[in-house]
Design a protein around this nucleic acid. Sequence first.
DNA 1: CTGAAAGCGCTTACAG
DNA 2: CTGAAAGCGCTTACAG
Lengths: 352, 352
Amino acid sequence: MARKVGRRGGNIVTIHDVARHVGVSPMTVSRVINGEKNVREETRAKVMASVEALNYSPNLAARSLATQDSARIGLLYSNPSVAFLSEFLLGILSESSQSGAQLLIESCEGPEGATAALEKMKAAGCDGVILSPPLSDSTRVAKILQDMKMPFVGVAMARPDPNVSCVTIDDFKAAGAMTRRLIELGHRDIGFIKGHPNAYASQIRYDGFAAAMEKAGLKIDPGHVAQGYFTYRSGFDAAERMLSQKVRPTAIFASNDDMAAGAVASAHRLGLEVPEKLTVVGFDDTAMASSVWPELTTVRQPISDMAGLSVRLLLDQIKGHRSGRPFEAVREVRDFSLIERQSSADIGSASS
Amino acid sequence: MARKVGRRGGNIVTIHDVARHVGVSPMTVSRVINGEKNVREETRAKVMASVEALNYSPNLAARSLATQDSARIGLLYSNPSVAFLSEFLLGILSESSQSGAQLLIESCEGPEGATAALEKMKAAGCDGVILSPPLSDSTRVAKILQDMKMPFVGVAMARPDPNVSCVTIDDFKAAGAMTRRLIELGHRDIGFIKGHPNAYASQIRYDGFAAAMEKAGLKIDPGHVAQGYFTYRSGFDAAERMLSQKVRPTAIFASNDDMAAGAVASAHRLGLEVPEKLTVVGFDDTAMASSVWPELTTVRQPISDMAGLSVRLLLDQIKGHRSGRPFEAVREVRDFSLIERQSSADIGSASS
DNA sequence: CTGAAAGCGCTTACAG
DNA sequence: CTGAAAGCGCTTACAG
């Protein structure tokens, strides 16, 4: 019944089993599964078939031990929305377990606390670090890391820096696209709730909104722009102020989902149905967006993919760093997308 | 400057470096870091000091390769709340990356779809599987796994089964404790929103609530008990029905946080301040609880710890299974705790 | 209480 | 295009 048994039981298919099955060396099998060039097509096919038949899949531990590209990476974050962070973490964890990287997670209170956290990581033997927003936009944190000669990559950076590697979306374009969509739905007076002032993305998102409004020849009512802090509560309060004015916007664009959810709650409290009486849209497409009701129309930012990619980028950079390859910053810009759910409605183009 | 360089660069402290530093064999160092008994206290101390000094920490890949206890485990889930799932995943991912386990994640539509997903896992070489609720309570799914002779452990099982390993909290007690707390705050007419009918925990939580009410000599108004489905929307609707009646409860206990958040929104819509006019409490303490405003008083279930523990239990079980050790189910019951935030208020004990 | 040998499953670097 | 050898960092099993 049992196939093969390891030193202490268990039956696992190894690269040797496949090699024997095909009648080649383990080396050749290794080449095939790693997609290397120098293998005869016929041999490749036979190996593939065998891999399939024996249901072989490589032992990640052995691989990362052999390749030596197992690294220890640190993740530094500071007070983001829980929903954002957990999606972020999911991406990081799943990629780092795939790549056999060891993870060290630290939080800090803004850029000021970063030094201590970073020292700690260095001491713990981290080979590089991932920065979550808004830390990724801090020139101060970047400087510290550069002085330490520590490879790092920023996620969701809004301020492009030719010297740092990052993976982002184009916040300006994304905010613009959502704004245009709202205009298309007939909205003319659109309120905007800004994100935390220390997050650079907040500024860019507002700029994208403002630019799209201007391009459409629409005015932004200063009373319909409010400062938020990325929290539900701040979105709630901001919307309450905005909606208690004599003239109300017909739509509110919040810079993240938590604030949008807060805005919806506030509208409900004031007896305004969403989306019948007010359209509310968010940004990020975190769990919050699809957990509340009505579910939120929002800009999808593929947070967990971006986080995963940042791990791969960092690992690459660490490899380069170790082998003395000169550093070259990469900027990966992912696509955003507009997700239309139930919190937005067409109010008919009342126009020229 | 550089300490030691591996085959392709990088400077990592290995067990050999520590051994050399102390003047013992790598074996001895290994014993110390694994906390084995047979080491002279003096030797142990020296090794520890050296580990500290050189900032050594073991290479997980090498360890799991050597111990052979690297396994492939599957995680099967079906339609839970996103907030719950993401905390669950966090625990699973972080523990499995620690233990060097490979993870395969599949979802299915209820117990019916489980067979296919499980076959797939088996084919992919999974050595065992983790079941999230409500799948963990399905006798049908348990049966399939047992027939496959596949080790598995259930998380958050409400229905104790002497033949299956699991990690849970005592839902009955937890619901009872929250209920007593509400009574202590002066509430007499407490509404209850049940969870999804196919989740066994829903029933148990209600039972715990009912038992505590009865023990306190309080009646449950049948109009103040509503069926929910663990979603925000269902909590919103249930609360709306409950709060539109002539007699309203002064508190609502929802079986999870998403529904509690929905209930708060519904109360707001009806012009009822929370917690001034209505206390609302939830269950689980997921991200939702602390994301909304007012933040939710809730029963904390350490989901991510529980999920992590389930991985360790499963790995243990797989090891036993491999070595032919007879199966013995373990039931780990973790502590819950009451988290009091801003959605609950003391309305004064109106009574003897 | 301590150590020398062998092996975990894979890959790199070197030959052919 | 393919393979034999050696090594990644750790632990098990066996001696002493």
